[in-house]
Simulated assay, not measured.
Amino acid sequence: MTNVLRIDSSIKGPASVTHKLTDSILARLGGEVTERDTTTIPLIDGTWIGAAYTPAENRTPEQKATLALSDELIAEIKAADVLVIGMPIYNFGVTGPLKAWIDQICRVGETFRYTDNGPQGLAGPKRVIVAYASGGVPLGSAVDLASAYIKQVLAFIGITDVTFVAAEGVAVDESAAVARAEAQIEKLSA
């Protein structure tokens, strides 16, 4: 059975377009689903950085506690065959909650390592389907700062199979934007 990790990042929760699209994607894919709502993930800070860059065998109990959520999030990724990411566009980029998740999962020695040839991802290969929703920012346009960013972050941790399902123009005509995205979902292979 396929293990699917669902990542929701909209502050609107189940009322968001991306939440509805991820529901449709999951119905299309099937599989065993783990759900992660990023809206409760804290931002990283200096204490977190200190813990992350301390060798595991030298971490204090406090440092281990600091990294416990990060460890859990990384374990979810590693256990998944497919990631389904709900990515609404706020002010041309990813949401704050999605950025908090990204910062928690990008960890040296866990999801990437540095080599003489540059960083090497350790979390792939995986399939990713991103449910992209924007009020008026077209996917891949010059003002879309989110899609290239999420592809770069995922590639950095070793995940390069990324597909986007886009509901563009939600602020103009939400029903039409969602219908276009649903048509894209129908073409996804399970």
Rank of each mutant, 00 (worst) to 15 (best):
M1F: 12
N3F: 02
L5R: 06
R6H: 04
I7F: 10
D8V: 10
S9W: 11
I11A: 13
G13V: 00
S16Q: 05
D23Y: 01
S24N: 03
S24D: 12
A27P: 00
R28A: 14
R28C: 06
G30M: 12
G31D: 07
T34C: 02
D37R: 10
T38L: 10
T39D: 04
T40A: 15
L43Q: 14
I44F: 06
D45M: 06
G46E: 11
W48T: 14
G50L: 07
A51Q: 12
A51W: 12
A51K: 02
N58A: 15
N58M: 14
T60K: 09
P61T: 10
Q63E: 15
Q63M: 15
Q63P: 03
K64P: 00
T66L: 06
L69W: 04
S70H: 09
I74H: 09
E76G: 13
E76Y: 01
K78Y: 01
A79L: 05
L83H: 01
L83N: 09
M87N: 06
Y90L: 03
T95R: 07
T95Y: 02
G96I: 12
L98V: 09
A100P: 01
I102M: 13
C106S: 13
R107F: 05
V108K: 11
F112N: 08
N117G: 15
G118K: 07
P119H: 10
G121N: 07
P125M: 09
R127G: 02
R127C: 01
I129L: 11
I129H: 07
A131Y: 03
Y132R: 07
A133S: 15
S141T: 09
A142H: 05
A146P: 07
Q152Y: 14
V153D: 00
V153A: 14
I159E: 03
T160Y: 00
T160Q: 09
T160L: 03
V162L: 08
V165A: 07
V165K: 07
A166F: 08
E168G: 08
A171H: 11
A171E: 10
V172I: 14
E174D: 04
A176K: 15
A177M: 10
A181L: 08
E182N: 09
A183D: 11
A183R: 08
L188D: 05
